[in-house]
Amino acid sequence: MKRNVLHGAVSAGVLGLAHVIVAALSPAAATQLRASYKAYYLGLPVATIGLTVDLVQDRYEARLGGDVSGVASMASGLSFEMQSRGKYRNGEVYPERYVYSSRAAKETHRQEVNFKSGNVATVAIEPPLKDLAERVPISAEHGQNVVDPLSALVAAMTSGDPKPATTCGDALRIHGGSVRADVSTSFLHMQATRTGRYRGQASLCAVRYNPVAGHLADASYVNFMRNNQQIRVSSASAGQGPFEILVHAVVPLQLGTARIELVEARIDGEVVNLK
């Protein structure tokens, strides 16, 4: 499998996670979510992923990182990390800074996006993309009224107002530095869900991923993901806590299927008993 196919799958998976709809939150309280996940490809474990979200009054900070190994990384090993921070008001996020970094063998990559008033202010990518001429150009308009992928996840998993998970149906303009995409979700139904850690009812949502700019214009995996109608994410209520927690995600790829499952979730250090 080509590395760009993997990167496309990882991006789609991460963006899928970013749109799980959630429960109530009192934004004045200091609250931390720590969740760990296991990723599978072709039925084999290929990655571990950790998510941390801190909400303190009108601020949020989030970190998502993982280590990919085996066939999914072409036996070279891949680690990645996202960091995002910004203002948080009534369930709305206003990102200020987003950083994505990855390391594979001797290769390193870093992207930083700074925001101002909901718009992209600056983008820095190191090293510069070698295939820039083959990518759909990202215009200034593409950087308006956007959020980064990790801020989108924070917005999807928190809310300033009580609302059931069945309100899934958000559409977001996401800018990660090198790629600009639209992602939308729609609620399907409640269903029994089973993972290694969770067994019970969960809200099932469909996710659509539409690459807008920054992607390779003629890449087959881009068209596949654009037309992919089978991306699914499931989430479950954390009870009286502030989060609706992702428990399961499925992303069909050109060859095989990627799956992500919750291992454990903790809120303010206490293990969450999902139900």
Rank of each mutant, 00 (worst) to 15 (best):
G86P: 06
K106P: 06
V120N: 02
V46W: 02
L44R: 11
V271P: 08
S151M: 00
V250Q: 12
E61R: 05
P127G: 04
A192N: 10
V263K: 10
S101K: 15
T195W: 01
G13S: 08
N223Q: 12
S73A: 06
S69M: 05
S234C: 10
R180H: 12
V123Q: 08
H175T: 04
H142E: 12
A124E: 13
H7Q: 13
V56F: 10
A156D: 00
V68P: 03
F80T: 00
R180I: 08
A155N: 02
T185S: 12
Q240S: 12
L55F: 01
R259C: 09
N4F: 13
C168H: 01
A133D: 15
S11K: 15
A238L: 02
D58F: 06
L51I: 01
Y198F: 15
Y41C: 11
S220Q: 11
A28C: 03
K87V: 12
S79A: 05
S26F: 00
Q229K: 15
P27I: 00
L51G: 01
S139T: 15
R180T: 13
R103D: 00
R266T: 14
L129C: 05
Q201F: 03
F80N: 05
E134P: 07
Q254L: 15
K2V: 14
S36L: 06
R259Y: 11
A72Y: 09
Q230W: 07
L262W: 02
A124D: 14
A28Q: 01
P252W: 04
A105H: 09
T52I: 08
S220G: 09
S79N: 12
N114A: 06
Q254A: 09
P45V: 01
P164N: 12
E244I: 04
A12H: 04
Q191E: 15
P242A: 10
H7N: 15
Q229Y: 08
G256L: 10
